[in-house]
Amino acid sequence: MSVLSELATLRRSRSARGTSPAERGDGKAAALFLTPWFLGLALITVGPVLASLYLSFTDYSLLAAPEWTGLDNYVEMFGDERLLTSLRVTFTYVFVSVPVQLAAALALALFLDRGLRGLAFYRSAFYLPSLLGSSVAIAILWRQIFGNGGLVNQVLGWFGIEGVGWISHPDYALGTLVILNVWTFGSPMLIFLAGLRQIPQHYYEAAAIDGANKLRQFWSVTLPLLTPIIFFNLVLQIIHAFQSFTQAFVVSGGTGGPVDATLFYTLYLYEQGFTNLNMGYASALAWLLLVIIAAFTAINFSLAKFWVFYDD
């Protein structure tokens, strides 16, 4: 008790003295260094977000002052057939490409975790698609590869198979974009690889003593201990997939074609805002996208307690 009373007395004496000049100086220096960040937060993030929220309740064409219309933009969404089409296309893209991408990334991470020679080179080489996958150049290249006379049809021709215009066919156009997203597996692969390196080796040794083979060790040791990394990658890649824009814009020529088969939600939002100059409606679409992403993130966090394993 004497120790506790001395600590309480010391705290009271410090609070009575107040903040020292040195501490006040440190606080001012910290505030000074943080000023650019706070300015960026206010001018680049918070300001545009609040402006977008206001514009979502207006009729704004970029050429005239916005006119307040209340909930008209949100009511209009219920009868917008192309909006429903864009949601269907985007959901299909997210639900197909994200699981396949994560499976490919995990498989490759397991392969690299075996301790290959030149591992640093392979990590860099496999990470490269993640850096280039969202670029305009890769989207143009993808359009050439899956075109009528592209590389895919040339390879199929070697086996006597007649190819099709993959990006111009409504049944296959979205599939080419799914393949492109799966190809950008580098970032989740590196995160998986880092997670695999953190699993203690003695778990595998104990499983081997109990007679577990490699497959059993994967299901009973690797996957449970890797679930926090899987959850982290899942949340990030779902958000990234919902925001995909460049690939669909370049491959479809900015139209979302053929027959709206690649009409991503973000592409439709862009079309409303900068093609139709309906910026008020585009702002409302942006806020709907925010709600959709927040809902999926909340669902993932609520379900995580049923399958994500933590050591503690």
Rank of each mutant, 00 (worst) to 15 (best):
N300V: 04
L62T: 13
F232L: 10
R24Q: 11
L285Y: 15
Y74R: 06
S134T: 13
A31H: 12
A16C: 02
L236C: 11
L225C: 01
V98A: 10
G149N: 10
L303R: 00
R14M: 07
N73A: 08
S20M: 03
L110H: 08
D113V: 06
A298L: 04
G165F: 08
L119H: 06
S135C: 09
T9H: 09
G147H: 00
F249N: 02
G165Q: 12
I145N: 06
N181W: 15
T222H: 03
A51K: 13
L110F: 08
G163D: 07
V291A: 10
T90I: 10
L132R: 03
F159V: 12
G280L: 10
L236Q: 15
L84Q: 09
G40D: 04
G47S: 03
Y310P: 03
L156H: 04
T262K: 00
R11G: 03
F245L: 08
G273K: 08
V3F: 11
E205W: 03
D260E: 07
P129E: 05
A207P: 07
F306V: 07
V136A: 12
G186I: 01
E162A: 11
W142I: 15
A294T: 10
T262S: 08
L110S: 02
G27M: 12
L119D: 06
G160I: 06
W287Y: 15
V3D: 12
I299K: 00
F185N: 06
F146D: 03
L225D: 01
G273H: 06
I293K: 01
L193A: 07
L193F: 02
L84W: 10
A22E: 13
N278V: 12
Y268E: 04
D80T: 07
W68Q: 04
R117Q: 04
W68P: 08
L289T: 07
V155E: 02
P224E: 03
R82F: 09
A104Y: 09
V3I: 15
F306W: 03
L39W: 01
